[in-house]
């Protein structure tokens, strides 16, 4: 029974990693930029929802939708102000830029909301569902369900809609996409808006699990590891890797001898290093060598 219990908490934790990783991959796939501030966008989303729902007292659904809207605008604005001047700069510069952005977002959130833990009121917080001896928190169920829905939406978006296909084209060759009439700049802003919205959703889903504070975005680093383990260009890869890391982490926490439980925190990195050694291109390989 304990195993099942561990598996369930592992899956819900893994879904969180998977969700943030999804945001990473989305931006990477469409713009070839690596957004290290993804976790901090999640944090910001959670705080904004907290503002609408707890401070202003809006109903959950309206607060959620309003958060999505605000985060969409935030994402597009960030793209317009900071990332667009970086088009054509080396990937390393973009990486550093988003790291800097993360610092700024944390400071802003800290300045507005302070550093104490906050609890977001959600309809799915606190309750417990039981099947025999297994008990599962509603918030865990919400995370898993929310993740599944989002994954399907993103998948359909990329495969079936014109905008989604245009995004893929823009990522493969910016100049060519521009020539065939795809509004590349507009697409990039849209990608950032979407990615920020996904992160915000992740933030709202995990809020009951991990309390809201300005440093909750650090979980994004683990999610980043998941994205790489999954092959970085692959949406299902990122999600599966997130899931795997979440599950292994839970088992490590209970399986490691006492005194060493702290090492379960490094699960994501150990898996990442193993992966990079045996299969540097990730589970779902998408890279090829430069041509001369």
């Amino acid at each position: 029974m304990e195993l099942v219990q561990l598996l369930i908490s592992g899956i819900s934790q893994g879904c969180v990693y998977g969700l943030i990783a999804l945001g990473f991959v989305l931006i990477y796939k469409a713009t070839e930029m690596v957004n290290f501030a993804q976790g901090d966008l999640m944090m910001l989303g959670a705080f904004i929802a907290f503002g609408f729902i707890n401070v202003l007292g809006w109903p959950f659904l309206w607060g959620f939708l309003a958060t999505l809207a605000v985060m969409g605008v935030v994402g597009a604005t960030l793209e317009r102000l900071l990332l667009r001047p970086m088009i054509g700069e080396p990937p390393f510069a973009v990486l550093m830029l988003t790291i800097g952005l993360g610092f700024i977002l944390r400071a802003v959130a800290g300045a507005i909301w302070g550093y104490e833990d906050k609890t977001l009121s959600t309809p799915y917080g606190g309750g417990v569902a039981r099947w025999g001896e297994i008990s599962v928190g509603y918030e865990n169920i919400a995370v898993v369900l929310g993740t599944l829905v989002l994954c399907v939406l993103v998948f359909v978006f990329f495969r079936k809609t014109r905008v989604g296909i245009a995004m893929q084209a823009a990522s493969q060759n910016q100049l060519a996409a521009y020539y065939v009439g795809i509004p590349v700049k507009w697409i990039f802003a849209l990608v950032w808006a979407m990615s920020a919205m996904i992160s915000a959703t992740a933030g709202i889903l995990v809020a009951p699990l991990s309390l809201i504070n300005p440093i909750m975005g650090f979980v994004g680093i683990k999610a980043f590891a998941a994205a790489i383990v999954g092959g970085f260009g692959s949406l299902p890869g990122a999600f599966l890797a997130g899931l795997m890391i979440g599950i292994v982490e839970q088992f490590a926490k209970h399986g490691l001898p006492s005194g060493l439980e702290g090492f379960s925190e490094t699960t994501a990195y150990v898996i990442l290093l193993i992966m990079l050694f045996i299969r540097p291109e990730g589970i779902f390989a998408t890279m090829q060598r430069k041509k001369v």
């Binding site: 900071l82 970086m86 510069a93 830029l97 800097g100 610092f103 700024i104 300045a111």
Partner: peptide
């Protein structure tokens, strides 16, 4: 007196340099 001002300013400087003076 805002706490956490320091890393925020670090980040801001980094961003400004990358955008305006790579």
């Amino acid at each position: 007196q805002i706490p956490g001002l320091e890393p925020g300013i670090f980040g801001l400087i980094l961003v400004l340099f990358l955008v305006y003076e790579p």
